[in-house]
Simulated assay, not measured.
Amino acid sequence: MVELKNRSAFHEYYFESTYIAGIVLVGTEVKAIRAGKVSFNDSYCQFHKGELFVKNMHISEYAFGTTQRHEPMQERKLLLHKKELKKLEAKIKEKGYTLVPLRIFFTDKNLVKIEIGLGKGKKVHDKRESIKKREVERDIKRYLK
């Protein structure tokens, strides 16, 4: 099972809640995701006319594709219930909140889903604390082995 994570997002943000959304894909994007050719660098989610889109997510072209190739950096629509979209849009309008894609995975029915997180940015000293906490946990695991 393929699962691709956005590791830098957990370093940059505190996440209050997460949501699982469907994603609209075209051409050979599914095969490229299955091959692990996704980059989350600086990707984020943005509302446009009441719809949610993920931007700056790079899905590389599939090497064995034919004429149905896709644009690697195109914005992709996310599929959520209207109730969830309205709640997220209200939260985003508050200062400091952002939506960030956390991971892409396949369900048991082979559907591509994306997990997005509603979070606030960390300050520099918060990042240092999370690094210290991670190192302490790593040392404890080494000691227990």
Rank of each mutant, 00 (worst) to 15 (best):
N110T: 06
G22T: 03
V24Y: 09
F64W: 01
G50T: 14
Y62M: 07
S43G: 09
L79G: 00
A21D: 08
Y44I: 06
F40G: 04
F47M: 08
E51W: 07
F106Q: 11
K37M: 08
K83H: 11
I23E: 01
S39Y: 00
R69P: 00
L102Y: 02
K55M: 03
D108F: 06
N56R: 15
V100F: 04
E89S: 07
E29P: 03
I20P: 00
V100T: 14
N110L: 08
L99T: 07
V54D: 13
K86F: 05
K82W: 03
F106N: 03
G27L: 08
K49H: 11
K83G: 03
Q68T: 10
G36H: 01
L85Y: 10
K82Q: 12
L79T: 06
K37G: 00
P101C: 06
Y97S: 14
L111V: 01
K93W: 01
E29M: 07
F40T: 03
F53C: 02
E75V: 12
R34A: 09
T98N: 04
V54A: 14
Q46H: 11
R103G: 05
D42C: 04
A90H: 10
R103W: 00
K87H: 06
R76T: 00
L78T: 14
L80Q: 10
E75F: 06
R76C: 02
L88P: 08
Y44A: 12
I92W: 02
E75Y: 04
L79Q: 12
D42T: 02
K77T: 04
R103C: 11
E71T: 10
K55G: 01
P101K: 05
E75S: 15
E51I: 06
S43H: 11
K31S: 11
K93T: 01
G27A: 13
E29R: 06
V112Y: 05
K91H: 08
G36N: 02
L102D: 10
V24H: 12
K91W: 12
K93H: 05
N56A: 13
Y44E: 09
G27D: 13
T107L: 04
H58R: 14
V54P: 11
P101G: 11
G96M: 05
L111P: 00
K87M: 03
L52Y: 01
R76Q: 01
K109G: 04
T28I: 10
K93V: 03
R103P: 03
A32K: 03
